[in-house]
């Protein structure tokens, strides 16, 4: 059984203004299955929603709608289950790229200028 990222949406299709998704589909001789939907933002996977849906009963043109329903349902479930927030987390999300390092230096320089450094 081959696992492939469906080409049409592999690069990430826009769901709303700042969220994209991609479908992971397993193909066998007899059927194709949607096994996961990755929700992306800024090119990073925010979450992977595991599914096990046979695509034989879905027309290709309806795949987008199916995926949106899966994501909507996932968000709705998460929201409904997260009413008791017991912990707070924060973390630095990324290691800075060279471009980010340069931009950080510019911002720091602006601040240093105000110190006369």
């Amino acid at each position: 059984m081959n696992q492939l990222t469906f080409n049409k949406i592999a690069l990430g299709k826009k769901l709303i203004d700042f969220i994209y998704y991609e479908a992971i589909i397993e193909k066998s001789e007899n059927e194709s299955k949607l096994i996961a939907v990755n929700v992306l933002a800024n090119g990073k996977i925010l979450t992977k929603i595991k599914t096990n849906i046979s695509l034989s009963e879905y027309e290709l043109g309806h795949l987008d709608r199916l995926i949106i329903e899966i994501i909507s349902s996932f968000i709705s479930d998460s929201e409904n289950n997260s009413s008791t927030c017991s912990k707070q987390e924060s973390f630095y999300a990324t290691k800075p790229s060279n471009k980010q390092k340069e931009a950080r230096n510019h911002v720091a320089q602006d601040l240093f200028n105000q110190f006369n450094l």
Partner: peptide, 17 residues
Amino acid sequence: YSLIDKTLIIEETFHCQ
């Protein structure tokens, strides 16, 4: 974001904050 570079310089994400 750095305005002059139009680049994200630092970020934090939070859960249940």
